[in-house]
Amino acid sequence: MIAGVFSQIGQSFQQLIGDVSSNPLFYLISFVLILSALMVVTLKNIFHSALFLILTLFSVAGIYILLHAEFLAAVQVLIYVGAVAILIIFAIMLTSQLTSKRIVQTNEQVTVALLICFGFLGTAFLSIPYTVWRIADVALPAENIFTLGKLLMTDYVLPFEVVSIVLLAALIGAVVLARREGS
């Protein structure tokens, strides 16, 4: 039965990413991605974890490129590596006592957390094969940034603007919090 599930997963996977699965680069990048993601959560030196997080995010960008989503890849690097990761590193550098040897990575809730995680993993495994993926048969547009830009400004303009309002609210919130501490 398990073998059946796996072959089913393989097939949906094939459908999802098309020719990508035959590309050796994909497996290389995925390997780096998973390995660095594991490093992020297992390393004791939190600065090293942050660096591996950057590698993880960068590998995700690599997968985007294989999926012909160059724009998404560039934005991924720009935002996650260029902004989020650097923010994290800054936070690490400004916090004291983060590299000491006595850091414990687990507490008493580790079993519960593990159970929940495996639950999610199992759900994902079971649901992927039985989901009907809507995959458009049309070929990728040659100028996909162009199309993306057009769509963001026409069909998806509302969500696009809502996202910016959320970001603005977060920004103002941060300023307010910082100010209250000062005065």
Partner: peptide
């Protein structure tokens, strides 16, 4: 690349990482 300039801007962020490292 059709993302030309964006690619450049994205890659230059690694300079920051190297400085921090």
């Amino acid at each position: 690349l059709n993302i030309g300039i964006l690619f450049i801007i994205a890659i230059t962020t690694f300079t920051i990482i190297s400085l921090l490292m």
